Amino acid sequence: MLEKDQESLFTTWLEEHSPSVMKVARAYTLTPDDCQDLAQEILLQAWRSLTNFEGKASPSTWFYRVALQTAMNWHRKDKPRRSRQQPLMEVQAVAAQDPNSAEQAQYRDTVEQLYAAIHQLPKTDAALVLLYLDELSYREMAEVLGISESNVGVKLNRAKKALSTLMGEQTHGS
Rank of each mutant, 00 (worst) to 15 (best):
C35N: 09
P80G: 11
Q45D: 14
D33Y: 09
W74H: 10
N52H: 15
D78G: 08
R76K: 15
A71E: 03
H75D: 13
Q69A: 08
S60Q: 15
K56R: 15
E15M: 05
S18Y: 00
Q45N: 15
R26E: 03
A27S: 14
P32V: 06
L68M: 14
H75F: 10
T31I: 09
R65N: 11
K23E: 07
E54C: 10
T31H: 10
P59T: 09
Q45W: 05
W47P: 07
T51Y: 11
T29R: 02
L44E: 13
R48Q: 15
I42R: 00
L50D: 02
P80I: 10
K56V: 12
M72L: 12
R48P: 12
D34V: 03
F63C: 10
Q45S: 14
M22Q: 06
E41T: 12
P32G: 09
T70A: 08
Y64D: 08
F10E: 01
V21N: 00
I42Q: 01
A57H: 07
A67S: 12
V21W: 00
Y64I: 00
Q69L: 09
L38S: 05
Q69C: 09
A57I: 05
T31L: 15
V21T: 08
E16Y: 02
V21E: 00
Q36T: 14
L30P: 00
Y28M: 14
W74V: 07
A46Q: 01
E41F: 02
